[in-house]
Every structure is written in structure tokens, then in C-alpha cells.
Simulated scan of single mutants.
Amino acid sequence: MVYRFNFYPYSRPFKQPLKTHHGIWEKREGIIIQLADERGKNGWGEIAPLSWFGSETLQEALEFCRKLPQTLTLEDILEIPDNFPACQFGFESAVTYPKTRFLKETGFLSQGFETGFLRELKFSGLLPSGKAALQVFQTLFQQGFRTFKWKIAVYPISDELDMFKQLTKLILETIISETDKTEWVNLRLDANGGLSWEEANKWLSVCDEIKSDILKIEYLEQPLSVEQFAEMLALSQQYFTSIALDESVATLSQIRDCYQRGWRGIFVIKPCIVGSPRKLRKLCRENHIDAVFSSVFETAVGRRAALNLASELSHPKRAVGFGVEHW
């Protein structure tokens, strides 16, 4: 199979800047790629790098695309190196899906691609950091969200713990006043690796103190830096509140490494930067990965491919982290 290749860079500003421990993010930049097969059938993919998570930079991805010939074979796509994970995802996602035995064996074909997602997905709504979360929670709750992610490690911990009390109080009051009291809310806290050892222990202690049938702290996400894997493994065994790895498992090689080093907890997987979709399928299925799939604020092109993977591979009882349209 031979494909005619084109690519189109894009830049889209956020409705409001996203504040995380990594800094302030004001616009999403990436590349839409087009692969047309010999019959003229177009396949679309997206390269959406996130370099501070460990993918290639946007500039590296652009240079990679500029150096490619105008025609590519399937073998060319399969040989994209692992140090270009966002490119791997984009090109494999753009491969049109002729139903050949070879493509089935390499993992390109998936039932959900042509017939719709394999199963219904529940979405987690992303709250802004700080007190702004209080107002946005009400809006997202009214829209039907019941799982939420809140960014922490942005403000001093004393301030954030006070905001956390306000947020959990609001959640409980909202459930009691606006539902039949049989519903519940899952809250995820995402530190982006920004807590100290002492702060991580404090957060986990506070989370463990919440005893409620209608509010669950689903997990604390990436409390410590990537270099502190052993410490996070120890924390996961000391508290009732679960810990999820995110920055530590940004790419396929990192997922393999953490699994081999003993992590059996939650893996937050950002498919648009993780690497090859076919290799990800194999890794998740062989090791029964407890996966939460999450957005990197990709366009509808990458989102479709990412959600297709999520419908196949994510934990069936966990919401996927794609409730970001309001950003």
C-alpha cells in the first residue's frame, strides 16, 4: 500500500489559559496529516506533541514531516522511531483501513473504527485550578458530569487544602440538593508531579479522611516527580486513596518500565503522545493495564482516534479524561 502524504500545521488558543504545575498553557499547536491511498481514500491523523511530558517537540515533528517524501508505504509508517511518539500515533491513526489480513495482524484494524465506539464512554470534566473550580463544577455537574479532575500543586498547599474543603463541601451539597441521593461523584486530584514528599503525604491523609457514600476521591495523580518512582510506589501501599501515574508513563517505554518495576496501580495514558496504537493495544492487553485514557487537548481528528483506543482498552468503570471541550 502506497500513500500520498500532506500535512497542515495548526495553532488554536484556549478559551482561557490552563494553569498547571508545569506553567501556563495558552494555545494548542500541532499538525494534521493526510494520507491518501491508491484508490483516493483519505485517512486523517493528528500529531499533537506535549514535549514537557516527554514527547518530541512541535518543531521536531514539523522537521520530521518536512523531510518525508510525498509518497509513503505502510512499512515507512511502521518504522517511525520511538523517539517520535506523537508522530507514530498520528501516522498510524491516519492509515486508511482496508480489510486485509496483514492490517488485522499488525493491529491497525479495530472493530470500533468503522462501526462506532465499542462501548459507551463516561467522561471526566476538567476543573480549573484554584477557586475557579467552584463555579465551573456547578456548570459541569448540570451538564451531566459525575467525575471531575482538579489541578493542584499550583498554589501554596495551605491555600489549596482550604479550597479543597470548599470544593468537597459544594459537591456534597449539590448531590444532596439536586439528585435523588443515589448518585455519587468521583474526584481526581492532579498534582502534575509538583508535590514534595511531605505534601503528598498530607494530601493522601486528607483524602483518606473523607468517608462518604456519595463522594469518592478516585485517585491522586502523579503526586511526585518522575524521578521519584520508588517513593510513589511506597505511597501507593500506605494509604487507602489510590495513586495514578501520569508523567511517569507518558510513552510506551515508560509504561513498560514502570510495569516491570512493580507498578500495578492506575496508568493515565495520553494516547496522542504515547506512541504506536498497535503496540499500545498489545501492551495493555497482555498486562491487563488499569488504564485511564486522557486528552492532550487535541483536535477532533486526534480525539476520534484516541477515543477509539479508549473504548477498547480503558478500564470499563473509569471515566476517560476527555471532558475538556469547555477549554
Rank of each mutant, 00 (worst) to 15 (best):
43 G>D: 08
43 G>N: 10
44 W>G: 08
49 P>E: 01
50 L>E: 10
51 S>M: 04
53 F>K: 03
54 G>D: 00
55 S>Q: 06
57 T>K: 10
58 L>C: 06
58 L>S: 06
60 E>F: 09
62 L>Y: 13
64 F>A: 02
65 C>W: 05
66 R>E: 09
67 K>G: 12
68 L>I: 04
69 P>V: 04
70 Q>L: 11
73 T>V: 05
76 D>Y: 07
76 D>V: 08
77 I>Y: 07
78 L>G: 09
78 L>F: 12
79 E>C: 14
81 P>I: 12
82 D>I: 14
83 N>C: 13
84 F>V: 07
85 P>M: 01
86 A>Q: 00
86 A>S: 10
86 A>T: 01
87 C>W: 00
87 C>G: 03
87 C>H: 00
92 E>I: 05
95 V>G: 00
96 T>R: 01
98 P>A: 05
98 P>E: 03
100 T>C: 10
101 R>D: 14
101 R>Q: 15
102 F>I: 08
103 L>P: 05
103 L>F: 12
106 T>Y: 15
107 G>Q: 04
107 G>Y: 05
107 G>F: 08
108 F>H: 10
110 S>H: 14
110 S>M: 14
112 G>V: 04
112 G>A: 05
113 F>Q: 10
113 F>A: 09
114 E>H: 12
114 E>Y: 11
115 T>G: 07
115 T>H: 08
116 G>H: 04
118 L>K: 10
119 R>H: 06
122 K>M: 09
125 G>W: 00
126 L>H: 04
126 L>M: 06
126 L>S: 07
132 A>L: 12
133 A>Q: 07
134 L>M: 09
135 Q>M: 14
135 Q>F: 13
137 F>M: 06
137 F>I: 06
138 Q>H: 12
139 T>V: 13
140 L>Y: 05
140 L>W: 04
140 L>M: 14
141 F>P: 00
141 F>Y: 08
143 Q>S: 06
145 F>I: 02
146 R>H: 09
147 T>I: 07
147 T>F: 11
147 T>A: 12
149 K>G: 07
150 W>Y: 10
151 K>W: 11
153 A>I: 03
153 A>D: 00
155 Y>I: 05
156 P>V: 03
157 I>F: 03
157 I>G: 00
159 D>M: 14
160 E>P: 06
162 D>K: 11
164 F>Q: 01
166 Q>T: 07
166 Q>M: 07
167 L>S: 09
168 T>S: 07
168 T>E: 02
170 L>H: 11
172 L>S: 13
173 E>P: 13
173 E>H: 14
176 I>Q: 14
177 S>D: 14
179 T>D: 05
179 T>H: 06
